[in-house]
Design a protein around this nucleic acid. Structure first.
Lengths: 168, 168
DNA sequence: TTAAACTTTCAAAATATTTTGAAAGATGGT
DNA sequence: ACCATCTTTCAAAATATTTTGAAAGTTTAA
């Protein structure tokens, strides 16, 4: 397989994986493209290489910046913006975990807290099942949340350092 | 908040969370409904409670069975099938991890292996960046895969037992 | 074998999501 | 102030996904 074909395959695969995990296909593809590109690219170049519209490229690049996966670069004497993707796999994983935690885990925990607090008749199987499921899921969600928090901030802890080293 | 409203909220929240993670909204909602229900339900009951069509209910329930989250129950002298959801949070998490690993992680690792093997000119920055990104991601993916495998099969290991206890 | 009870299928319809592209909005140099 | 260059916006169009429901399929009992 030659490089051009291989790049294409990677972009496709990354796009597919992304969409299976609730990340817009194009966003994942633009990210893949930037991961494979040594220098920063302009909106124009992203548009061309992936055959997408200006609007789409613009929005997608903003999103990637908001996710902390891509940074905007300005070059001396040039008006246009260049986009560069962080190539550190570990940072990418960290950023994705961080964002999804904030966007999805936190809100669901808030709801689960409310629902855990709902009172009812302990003799009623309907209530008992409801309460058990909700509190169990809440517990798990909170543990995941806590663990992520620790992993995300405290890479300095010897304990986590040794666990995380396995993944790097 | 009273029970009926709380149940409704949980079903909605679970559906939303599911769809943000690439799981069909209805599938997540049916799962939520079954999680809240002490006894097994028939297709008919699921249709009514969630106002969905027969076809949808049928397909969704099959999917949940394929994911290992719901089981079919047959009752003495009755023709119709009843559906019951495993209420053990830990099992649910295990099953989801197991299925997604099989369906998504394994295929992407296969592709990354192929792409890692692509040869090129080490002096070419295009190639170098491609190769680094692909092999780095491949490494991370393989570590995640290995870890999941260990977690999924070997709960008997004292090491994992102590780690996993934190989450339960 | 028939028929009632139940399940499955799948093309078409409904809905949701993504993408486009032209126009409006910025920005900076002259 | 004007213009060229670049970015952003967003309603409409294109695409993708999900849902429907009626018909076909299956199973069981009499």
């Amino acid at each position: 397989m030659e490089l051009t074909e291989a790049k294409q395959k990677f972009i496709e695969a990354w796009g597919k994986l992304g969409s299976e995990w609730g990340i817009n296909r194009t966003m994942a593809q633009v990210h893949a493209l930037l991961l494979l590109t040594p220098e920063a690219l302009t909106t124009e170049e992203v548009m061309e290489k992936l055959s997408i519209s200006r609007g789409n490229a613009n929005m997608t690049l903003r999103d990637l910046i908001n996710w902390g996966l891509v940074e905007k670069q300005l070059k001396q004497g040039e008006r246009k913006e260049y986009f560069y993707a962080d190539k550190d796999t570990w940072n990418i994983a960290r950023q994705v975990a961080k964002e999804r935690r904030k966007r999805e885990l936190d809100p669901i925990i808030k709801i689960l807290d409310e629902l855990s607090a709902v009172k009812g008749n302990e003799k009623d199987p309907e209530y008992k099942t409801f309460h058990k499921s909700v509190t169990d899921i809440n517990k798990l969600a909170k543990n995941v949340d806590k663990t992520l928090e620790i992993m995300l901030k405290a890479e300095e802890s010897w304990f986590w350092k040794s666990i995380l080293k396995v993944f790097k």
